[in-house]
C-alpha cells in the first residue's frame, strides 16, 4: 500500500535520511523503531509532505506522491498523526474532528465523502473520553486525551494508510496501555498503519513487521517475532 524507496531528506543543509526503503502492505501494521534522533519522525514527515524529500520515491497505492505538498498527500489518502500531537488548541474537540474530515467535506479534488457522521460516531465510540469533551476547547484536554484526539482526527480522513508518530510519548503507563489497545483494535479493523515508537517492546507486540533505524538508515528488518527474538534488538531497544 505504501512503498518508500531510497528516501533522502533533511532540514536545510543537514541531511537526516540517507536512503530509506520500506514497505507497508495493505491491512498490515509495520513499525519503525530506533533511538532518539535516528530519523523516524523525519521519515514520516518526508512521506506526508511536511518536509520535501531530496531524493527517492514514495508511492501510495501505486501512485507516486513524492514531494507533494502535505494537503495533496492527505487528499491522496494518507493520514499522519504527527509528533507532539499538534491538535488545534483554540478549537473544540468536535471542530478538530471535523477538520480531520476536511478533504471529505470540501468540493473539488478531494476524498470521497462516505459516511462522515457514521465515522464521527465511530471515533467517539473508540475514544469515549472525547465524546464527553466534544464541545470543550482541545487545548484544555489532558495529554492523554490530546493524543486520543490526534489519532481520532487522523482517522476522520478515512485513510488508506495511517502514520502514527510516537502515540505513547509522555503518557502515563495506564494511558500507554490504552493507546496500544486502540492500535490493536484499529489493526483488527484492517487499517494499514506505519507506527513509529520508542517503546519497541509494545510496538513489536502489535506490529506484523518491523524496521530498525539508526543514524538515518535502516539497519535491520524482519517480522515482528523475529525482531523480538533478535539479540541485537533485545540489547539495544528491548532493555534486556
Amino acid at each position: 500500500m505504501l512503498e518508500i524507496e531510497g528516501l533522502e531528506a533533511g532540514y536545510g543543509p543537514v541531511r537526516v535520511l540517507h536512503g530509506i526503503s520500506l514497505k507497508v502492505p495493505k491491512g498490515r501494521v509495520v513499525t519503525l523503531i530506533g533511538a532518539n534522533g535516528a530519523g523516524k519522525s523525519t521519515t514520516l514527515r518526508a512521506v506526508s509532505g511536511m518536509i520535501q524529500p531530496t531524493a527517492g520515491q514514495v508511492r501510495l497505492a501505486g501512485k507516486n506522491i513524492t514531494g507533494l505538498p502535505a494537503h495533496r498527500v492527505a487528499q491522496a489518502g494518507l493520514a499522519h498523526s504527527p509528533e507532539g500531537r499538534r491538535i488545534f488548541p483554540n478549537q473544540s474537540v468536535r471542530d478538530n474532528l471535523i477538520l480531520g474530515a476536511y478533504t471529505r467535506l470540501t468540493f473539488g479534488h478531494s476524498r470521497p465523502r462516505g459516511d462522515i457522521s457514521g465515522d464521527f460516531e465511530r471515533a467517539l465510540d473508540l475514544f469515549p473520553r472525547l465524546r464527553e469533551r466534544q464541545y470543550q476547547l482541545a487545548g484544555t484536554l489532558s495529554g492523554g486525551e490530546q493524543q486520543m484526539l490526534a489519532m481520532a482526527r487522523a482517522l476522520m480522513l478515512n485513510p488508506d494508510v495511517l502514520l502514527l508518530d510516537e502515540p505513547s510519548l509522555g503518557l502515563a503507563p495506564v494511558l500507554v496501555e490504552e493507546v496500544f489497545h486502540i492500535i490493536r483494535r484499529l489493526k483488527s479493523e484492517g487499517i494499514t498503519m506505519l507506527l513509529v515508537e520508542q517503546f519497541a517492546h509494545a510496538a513489536l507486540a502489535v506490529a506484523d513487521y518491523g524496521f530498525v533505524m539508526e543514524n538515518g538508515r535502516i539497519v535491520l528488518e524482519g517480522s515482528a517475532t523475529e525482531l523480538q527474538r533478535d539479540e541485537q534488538v533485545k540489547s539495544a531497544y528491548l532493555g534486556h
Binding site: S48, H71, F88
Partner: peptide, 11 residues
C-alpha cells in the same frame, strides 16, 4: 494555530 498540522488535514 498550526500551519503544518493544517496541511496534514488536507487544507
Amino acid at each position: 494555530s498550526d500551519r503544518g498540522a493544517a496541511g496534514l488535514m488536507g487544507i
